[in-house]
């Protein structure tokens, strides 16, 4: 090999080494240390226990969909689950200050947050509920018909937006989401716009009513992990994917909703 070529290779090697060193220095020290995935020997789960049926306290015990999901996730990761109660305002700060490893607390994916979100595990969006066989599965189908919703709720605001976008429809505000759904079941309205959780709970209590439900404004819920722990986020995501795949998540949703 000619001396000039050798020198060129040497220069390239030095440049590559420099780039590698810069990348290594740029990476956060906690990630360089190859910290264990869950260094406290448990999956520490931050949860706001004021939000049934996702998480709530009864007889000093934690219950709910998120609680069961947390336990299933810990089982899948083969470590014990440890729940840490936090208020909603303190959830993300609790994650940032390493008081918990993950947040499972009916969290909507929020692009403004500096965290990793998992795959969604439930859609808690607004749903149109109507009698089976009626064509009320989209906003456009409502023109000229009657829509029931809870007065002053998110569905009320959404209905107001729809009134500006499609041909007029009759609005029927009620005091409670259950009344709005009653109105459809009893023939006072063609469809009800309510949150998916209220809809599922109502339909569970009315098994004889042949109704259909269609989510028209999705609100995916997901698990959050710290932004500087990509390894943890990937492990959680993989475990959650396995739970979705084997039907565990669907069974938990059916149990609570």
């Amino acid at each position: 090999m000619a001396a000039a070529t050798r020198r060129r290779f040497a220069l390239i090697a030095v440049a590559l080494a420099l780039v590698a060193a810069l990348i290594w220095l740029a990476v956060d020290p906690s990630r360089r240390e190859s910290a264990p995935l869950f260094r406290h020997g448990a999956l520490r789960i931050g949860v706001d226990a004021s939000y049934p049926p996702f998480a709530f306290l009864a007889d000093d015990q934690l219950h709910g969909l998120d609680v069961d999901l947390g336990r299933a996730l810990a089982d899948e990761l083969d470590i014990p689950a440890q729940f840490v109660l936090l208020g909603f305002d303190g959830l993300y700060d609790g994650l940032q200050t390493d008081q918990v490893d993950v947040l499972i607390s009916a969290l909507r994916i929020d692009p403004g947050r500096q965290v990793h979100y998992s795959l969604p595990y439930f859609d808690a969006g607004l749903a149109l509920v109507s009698a089976a066989g009626r064509d009320f599965t989209t906003m456009a189908a409502l023109s000229g018909h009657a829509l029931a919703f809870e007065f002053g709720s998110e569905a009320h605001s959404e209905a107001n937006r729809w009134l500006r976008r499609i041909q007029p429809f009759e609005t029927r505000p009620y005091e409670l989401p259950a009344y709005a759904l009653d109105a459809v079941r009893l023939g006072h309205a063609d469809a009800a716009l309510v949150d998916a959780v209220s809809a599922r709970l109502y339909l569970r209590d009315q098994p004889d009513w042949g109704a259909q439900m269609s989510v028209v404004r999705p609100v995916p819920l997901a698990i959050a992990t710290r932004i500087d722990r990509l390894d943890r986020a990937l492990a959680v995501n993989e475990a959650l994917a396995a739970l979705i795949e084997d039907g565990t998540v669907a069974a938990l949703i059916d149990r609570w909703l």
Binding site: S50, A106, E150, G152, S153
Partner: peptide, 16 residues
């Protein structure tokens, strides 16, 4: 607060 799920909330009409 008038959220349908929060344990410390009331209905929108009660809130008013």
């Amino acid at each position: 607060n008038d959220h349908p799920r929060w344990t410390m909330a009331v209905s929108p009409s009660q809130r008013i």
